[in-house]
Design a protein around this nucleic acid. Sequence first.
DNA 1: CGGAATTATAACAAAAGTATCACAGCGGCA
DNA 2: TGCCGCTGTGATACTTTTGTTATAATTCCG
Lengths: 234, 234
Amino acid sequence: MDTKNVLIVEDDTNITELLSIHLSDLGCKVVSEKNGQNGLARAQDESFDLIILDVMLPGLNGMEICRKIRQGDRQTPIMMLTARSEEIDKVMGLETGADDYLTKPFSVREFIARVRVIFRRSEEKARYAAPTPQLISIAGLEIDIDKRKVMLRGERLDLSPREFELIVLLASNPGKSYSRKQLLSLVWGYDFEGYEHTVNTHINRLRGKIEADASNPIFVLTTWGIGYRFNEDL
Amino acid sequence: MDTKNVLIVEDDTNITELLSIHLSDLGCKVVSEKNGQNGLARAQDESFDLIILDVMLPGLNGMEICRKIRQGDRQTPIMMLTARSEEIDKVMGLETGADDYLTKPFSVREFIARVRVIFRRSEEKARYAAPTPQLISIAGLEIDIDKRKVMLRGERLDLSPREFELIVLLASNPGKSYSRKQLLSLVWGYDFEGYEHTVNTHINRLRGKIEADASNPIFVLTTWGIGYRFNEDL
DNA sequence: CGGAATTATAACAAAAGTATCACAGCGGCA
DNA sequence: TGCCGCTGTGATACTTTTGTTATAATTCCG
């Protein structure tokens, strides 16, 4: 929800570059395609926060692309670019379903302003919507990843960020043993420079919070000589 | 939700008539005002599906009206008309918050196309969007989103706009932890450029108003290392 | 059983994150 | 115009987390 992904389908490299520059300024990650087929394929395969379509395209025209995208996806905002302003009613028509429209040559300021409005609108939309919960539930231990909530037999546990990341990783793959090195790189980040036994300390603290008896753990087990794993027999 | 109500605030009678004719063709019920004050009053008193504002107006300019409407109502689509295309970024900017924009002289076909898109969008929204609850009531805290009113144990709280947005967002998803970045993007707008710890200050002020003991909050809790959440166990 | 290797635990200080307050800029409003 | 409330920022005090050090406990294996 932070950096926006934008797809530009446009055969004129100058325009693509111009738009890319300004979209990057807004903090967007931009990818582009030069022809219709590829553009459509990409739009359908990947997920974008905005798709910018030129109407005149080699291969498959922009309106067709727009219509096909809309068959499978009513969400993603689509902005159309065209040379002829008379086309606007066709382009923005119900069947086609574009969200906004710009006639070439357009002012960059207007372009940016319209993009901003589109983004504002999507955020407004995403605002109060409850996200689909990602839940892990094993033997009285419940983890709601999105809420960053861990419940043990009905009580909320107060885990530190590292502890939370650790338990999520381990509990996502019960039975899989992770070496300390792996844990450091997965939880701390690949560029962490420190001692492996730092992991011990954190596992220990984690156990202190989630285990009834920390010296006889039932959730987070030690794989001797290797590292740690989440108990798969629960 | 069949016939749409449209308000036109415009001093040029010719334009008002032209727009009215075409809006009527679309099945809209159109009313109009010739000056700013009346336009604003009407926009605030009655309920419309679209408000069309001229930027240049006697009395109160269109951008001001737009901004004032947006203070109390984020929903109603607003389309701005202006003579100068350079103004677009100001007009559609975050504070002003217009949804669409047309530069005079504009093509009627374009006007109609844009209106259609706006209506299509509202209908999509009405159809799919989960109806945002207008009232939130938890543990003596009552939030009336429409009226922008917050009551605590029967007493009305005087929250600033930001504080109100914050509490509404948090209380809409009790238990969900929002990072400061998310809050900035959702409450301040995705293009806010400022420090994350601005959020701290606002949360702090909010707590000062809604919590009995601000250092032992029961409504707005801290998720350490992440951000804030609304207490789900109330 | 002994000893080396590995893991567990506790304590501590540095680092990171959070709370709070004061202040200046801005815009609204009388 | 001057006053007042809202905002964002800077400064500072405060809290929690975190990595490390130190030491104890456990496991493995000959």
